[in-house]
Each structure stands twice: as C-alpha cells, then as structure tokens.
C-alpha cells in the first residue's frame, strides 16, 4: 500500500512539475515542425537553449522580464531563419542534419569558457540571477509553502506552484494557438505540404514561406519551453542537449503527432513513466544488479528502444489518426 501511495504521489508530482510543462511546450513546438509540417528538426533543444540564454542574459543584465522573454523568442526566430533559408528548399534530410549540428554548436559555444562572463560557461547561469522578477510577479505570498493533497511546494520561489501554473497556462495557450491555426486554411496548406509539397506548389502556394513560418513558430514555442524550463532550474548548456530533443520526439510520438493535445499527454506519460521506473527499481531491484547512476541510463535505453518501436508499430501515437498519419510512405 505504501508503495502504491508513493507511485500516486510521484506520478502527481510529475504532472504538476513545471519541467513537464516545459517539455510539453517544446513538444508542441516540435509538433508544429514534425507533426504538422513534416520538418525533421533534430535540434529542438537548441531552440530551447537559445530561448533560455536570451531570457536569462537579458534579465541578468537588467533588461526586465518582458524584454527578456522577447529576446529569447527573437533569438529562436532568428535561429530558425538561419537554419531554414539554406535547407527548406532541399530534401528533408538536410534540415535534420543542419538542426542537429546547430543545436550541438549552440550547446558547445554556450559552454565555452570565453563566453563565461555572459553565459557562465559550462557551469551556466544560476537560477537566482534571473528569477527574482518572475517571483515578484507572483500573486501568491512570496515566501512559504503550500500543500495540496500530498504535494507541497513553495508558493512563489524556485520550483513553485506559481511557476507550474504559469508553465501549464503557457502550454495550454500554445495548444490553443495550434488548434486555431490548424483548423484554418493556413493549417490546411501546411498539412498539404507535409504530404506532397509539389502538389501544393502547383496550386500557387508559396511552400517555402509556409515552411519557414512553421519553423519559426515551432522554434518560438520551443524557446518558450526553454524559458519555463530554466525558471525551474538553472541555465546549463548540457541540460539541453541532444538527449532533450530525443525525449521530445518520444513525448510527441507517444501522445500522437499532429494532434493538439498529443504533446501534453505524451509529456505527462513520459514523466510519470520515468518516476515510476525509478520507484520500481529502487523498490525491487537490488543495487548490485543496477546501481542508481545506471537508472537514468537504463531509462534512456528504454526510451530509445520505445521510440523505435513507436515509430514502427504505432506511428500515430495514442491520440493520432492512422488515416491522417503525419509521416510515412
């Protein structure tokens, strides 16, 4: 009974967590790219990282929170333009290659010691340097803890109810924007491009512009996810590397690509899976078989294998429609 309660409690914490919201946001952005438009962006973590850097650096330098958010989103938009212009006229593989490379480079350059005054190098930028203004915006008490059922978090500071609320509000807002866009004629053109861009081109649509809009939009939503992510942690280049992008693909494909709520559902399920796996291993597997530092590795091995199996056997995910399969033959 005790163990089941632990599972319930940890599962709930995974759903409340602002990290889950950040992943949901980034996966919504990736959904715009990959799910709806068919753009294989393997550098979504790069968009997140740019958003995080833009936000944290501007706020740290005294730019104010609004300017910080704008800077983060603008950085992602510019990044999308730079990556999109050379690749969006070519086969999809090139975008994939360029995005994975560019995201890695942002991570490496961000961690470079020569930029340490700005980015903090490998160590990154600590949360306290940019989160004050966000905490100040909180309508709740600035200090103290609030308990809801078995979950206790600070009201406003650090990993707070306030942050979770904002994170999930943004995720729902992003989902709403995606919903509105993809029931519109714009969304229709995008879906057409995903399936056969020559057909859409022959109907007089500027395919390149559509793809670029999609790349920028998804990247900006990803950057927003990055900002939410670092408000609950610190800005660390290595925390937003390829692993994050791969997890986002798993989240997206699990929930269902090209569905409005798929990324959110996928994010829930993924994080619940992670904590439950930890709980189960901690409870039942002796540490001689698997030590605790191997648990995350084991989790990721399962995630990688799960991603392969999903793509092969249920590419539409949980919520998707097989007939509208967003990618395939």
């Amino acid at each position: 009974m005790n163990f089941l309660y632990t599972l319930f409690q940890d599962g709930g914490a995974a759903i409340i967590s602002s990290t889950t919201a950040a992943f949901a946001l980034a996966a919504i952005g990736l959904n715009v790219h990959f799910g709806y438009t068919g753009l294989v962006n393997i550098g979504q973590a790069g968009f997140m990282l740019l958003g995080a850097y833009g936000f944290a650096i501007v706020v740290e330098q005294g730019g104010g929170i609004l300017l910080g958010v704008l800077a983060g989103l603008a950085a992602a938009a510019v990044f999308a333009l730079i990556l999109g212009i050379p690749t969006l006229r070519l086969r999809g593989d090139y975008l994939a290659i360029v995005t994975i490379a560019a995201a890695e480079i942002i991570r490496i350059v961000g961690g470079d010691q020569s930029l340490a005054p700005l980015t903090g190098g490998v160590a990154g930028i600590p949360n306290a340097k940019y989160s004050d203004q966000f905490i100040a915006l909180s309508p709740f008490p600035k200090a103290g803890l609030f308990t809801f059922g078995p979950w206790t978090y600070p009201y406003s500071a650090g990993n707070s109810w306030w942050l979770s609320l904002v994170g999930w509000a943004l995720a729902l807002l992003a989902a709403l924007v995606v919903f509105l866009l993809f029931r519109s004629p714009w969304g229709r053109a995008i879906k057409g491009i995903r399936e056969d861009e020559d057909a859409v081109r022959s109907l007089g649509k500027n395919v390149f512009a559509y793809k670029m809009q999609s790349l920028v939009l998804g990247g900006v939503i990803g950057a927003l996810g990055g900002i939410v992510f670092v408000l609950g942690a610190s800005v660390q280049p290595d925390a937003l590397g390829r692993t994050t992008t791969f997890l986002l693909y798993t989240v997206l494909l699990l929930g269902g690509a090209a569905t409005v709520l798929g990324p959110i559902l996928g994010s829930f399920l993924y994080f619940i899976f992670v904590v439950w796996l930890q709980d189960v291993v901690a409870q039942f597997v002796p540490s001689t078989v698997m030590n605790s530092s191997q648990i995350p590795q084991f989790t990721y091995i399962l995630v990688g294998a799960g991603l392969m199996l999903l793509v092969i056997f249920r590419p539409q995910g949980i919520l998707g429609n097989k007939k509208e399969l967003s990618f395939g033959a």
Binding site: G38, V40, I42, G92, D93, A96, R242, T243, F246, Y249, T250, L253, Q294, Q297, F298, Y300, I301, V303, G304, A305, G306, L307, M308, V311, I312, P315, F327, G328, A329
Partner: peptide
C-alpha cells in the same frame, strides 16, 4: 514499406538507445 522519414526517426531512436547502452 516504412517511409524514409519514419526510418530516419527509427535511426534517431537507435542512436539514442545505443548511446545509453554504452554509458550503461
């Protein structure tokens, strides 16, 4: 008859799993 995009994502999953098998 998996599409190339699908296959590409499968290779991404494989690469991810392999990296952590090495770490494991």
């Amino acid at each position: 008859g998996l599409g190339l995009t699908q296959l590409m994502v499968v290779t991404i999953g494989l690469s991810f799993a392999a990296e952590y098998v090495f770490q494991y």
